[in-house]
């Protein structure tokens, strides 16, 4: 178990290293002169030289890369060109919006998908199954940012019961801050819910066909108990896997939804960095997002060992 954990952690570390190398390559090496990109064509030679100096572009490539990842490890992400503040602080600030948003969206999607998927698996080919199948197809097909627009139209513009966008900050109190995240989280959750419903349905249906479920029924356990205690529990591994794989789409969705609702989150920061050509912020935010996706999938991998003791034996 410890050896396995060590092996997986080493692989996690290597993957993160590869990701950082790739980002550095795309953002720093490919453009030739990042300073020229950031300032545009109209910049004078003096300002260009000053920015090159500030970014440390006069140093060799390898030194710059090592400085960057050394900074990543120690929490020093450099200084934003547009904001003039440390990028680490910027990311921290924005995380206070994006993380709760993603968390509520995941909770919502699981709360919708788990009962819906289990119910359709239990009543396969019945009316509930068909309706759930249609609803999940609908959720998958409808773009989250459009749902966000429609929600804003109905609940903010027409009914006026919800804020149409913006974020008061957590210092404004838990209630108002949470309220600002409700519509965005719903918009973000629906697609995930659609995917998860389908996965839950097929995973539970598969387990329901297993011998041990038949045995449980044969020994007199009620249907409901076999369904939830035996079938659902064993179906959790594929469900959690997809939840992890979907995380990359959740991040992508958050970038869009934050822009619909004007939420000052990480996605909006990345977008602003793009429009302002702030490559320092861009590079760090992309690294942060990619690292988060990899870390979540690593944790999902690890969670199998808790969910399924057989894998613990197998991977020894």
């Amino acid at each position: 178990m410890t050896a396995l954990l060590l092996r997986r952690s080493a692989s996690l570390f290597l993957t993160l290293l590869a990701v950082s190398g790739l980002i550095f390559l795309v953002m720093q090496v490919l453009p030739g002169d990042p300073a020229a990109i950031m300032l545009g064509t109209s910049a004078s030679a003096d300002t260009l030289a000053a920015l090159r100096q500030e970014l440390g572009l006069d140093q060799p490539m390898l030194v710059r890369y090592l400085q960057w990842i050394g900074g990543l490890a120690s929490g020093d992400l450099g200084t934003s060109i547009t904001y003039g503040v440390p990028v680490a602080g910027l990311i921290g600030e924005r995380l206070a919006v994006t993380l709760p948003l993603a968390f509520i969206a995941i909770l919502l999607s699981v709360a919708i998908a788990l009962p819906l998927g289990v119910l359709s698996a239990a009543k396969r080919n019945g009316p509930v199954d068909y309706i759930a199948g249609f609803v999940s197809q609908l959720f998958i097909a409808v773009p989250g940012f459009w749902v966000g627009l429609l929600l804003a139209l109905v609940f903010a513009v027409k009914l006026g019961v919800m804020p149409s966008g913006g974020f008061p900050g957590w210092q404004a109190g838990f209630g108002p801050a949470l309220q600002a995240l409700v519509l965005p989280a719903i918009a973000l959750a629906l697609q995930q819910a659609g995917v998860l419903t389908r996965v839950t349905r097929s995973a539970v249906a598969e387990v329901l066909g297993e011998d041990f479920v038949r045995t449980a029924r044969a020994k007199g356990l009620p249907k409901r108990v076999t369904l939830w205690r035996h079938a659902v529990r064993n179906a959790l591994v594929p469900v959690v896997t997809i939840l992890g794989l979907q995380f990359t789409f959740l991040i992508a969705g958050a970038v869009l939804i934050e822009n619909v609702f004007n939420l000052p989150g990480l996605g909006r920061l990345a977008y602003q960095a793009l429009t302002q050509r702030d490559l320092v912020v861009m590079q760090d935010v992309v690294m942060f997002f990619a690292g988060l996706v990899i870390l979540v999938n690593f944790l999902v991998d690890m969670s199998y060992l808790i969910l399924d003791p057989r894998l613990r034996e197998a991977s020894r």
């Binding site: 993957t15 990359t248 991040i251 992508a252 990619a290």
Partner: peptide, 8 residues
Amino acid sequence: IFAFPPVL
């Protein structure tokens, strides 16, 4: 590569 959603 899978860690980079197309938006990023």
